[in-house]
Design a protein around this nucleic acid. Structure first.
Lengths: 135, 135
DNA sequence: GAAAATTTGCAATGTTGTTGCAAGTTTTAT
DNA sequence: ATAAAACTTGCAACAACATTGCAAATTTTC
């Protein structure tokens, strides 16, 4: 792991530990998104399952990686392309999932079109039933 | 439940049972998407948890409902707008999630833009590593 | 209305994710 | 360089969610 890569951890105020270095490296080397299980497989059980969960959680909070929901009950994780500010992800892109191998790839340039308001949606943020909560 | 609604089950080659009628009715009445937990709540535990799982699975297979992934590891389900052929969903639309109440609504008219081929994607169906599996 | 086919419920089991706390590691400050 | 403070990890226990096999019950077919 290079100094530049460790800086990703430093800049986010994270201690540099073996686990975080290894897991960040996996993401930097990965072509697609990774599941918790992929990470366990690729670390030869060097780290506790709980540590992997907590590391992923921390990386998400810091904006280093983002979550990708799937229909098969296994959230995937992938590097944020730009440096997402802590707690302020801006990764409104689309994900491609291969029909054959199910590899999941961020299509950072493909974003979701703007949404037209309907009687069910009040703004791009709240549904009609909730409009009273808007300021 | 009307005859027309029961026809949805008949047309899909499903036996008409109390559980299926009740769960289908819930979807027909629902404004947004439903989670497994929502269904259990709204049936007063009249059906076994396993039955609910199996009914949802059957409905997905038959194209009556489709799955909506979420980042909090709780797959949601919603009615397919058009009659999706069994095993051939055509629900490539976007889902709106309310910031406040988290109600999830299908935006059937908002679809994802076409994907440009890149060195990682071979067709809209397979990734580059898998192109050898294409016919 | 009886036989065949399908569906359900129960019990057991598997998988995935979370929490508290003591021990270990990293960072900070001297 | 080193000790104290801050943070991270692993373990064990637990909780939530999901799946499977099989016998009993229901639905459909004839």
């Amino acid at each position: 792991m290079t100094e530049a890569q460790m800086d990703i951890l430093r800049k986010n105020g994270l201690s540099i530990t073996e686990g975080r270095k290894k897991i960040l490296e996996l993401f930097l080397d990965a072509d697609g998104a990774l599941a918790h299980a992929d990470i366990e497989k690729n670390t030869d059980a060097a780290f506790d399952r709980v540590t992997v969960y907590r590391t992923l959680q921390t990386f998400v909070e810091k904006g280093i990686i983002h979550q990708i929901p799937t229909t098969d009950n296994a959230v995937l994780y992938a590097l944020c392309k730009d440096n997402c500010a802590a707690g302020h992800h801006h990764d409104e892109h689309v994900h491609f999932i291969c029909n054959h191998c199910h590899k999941t790839i961020c299509l950072d340039d493909v974003t979701v079109p703007l949404v037209k308001l309907t009687e069910r949606i009040y703004t791009p943020a709240n549904c009609y039933g909730c409009k009273r909560y808007l300021q």
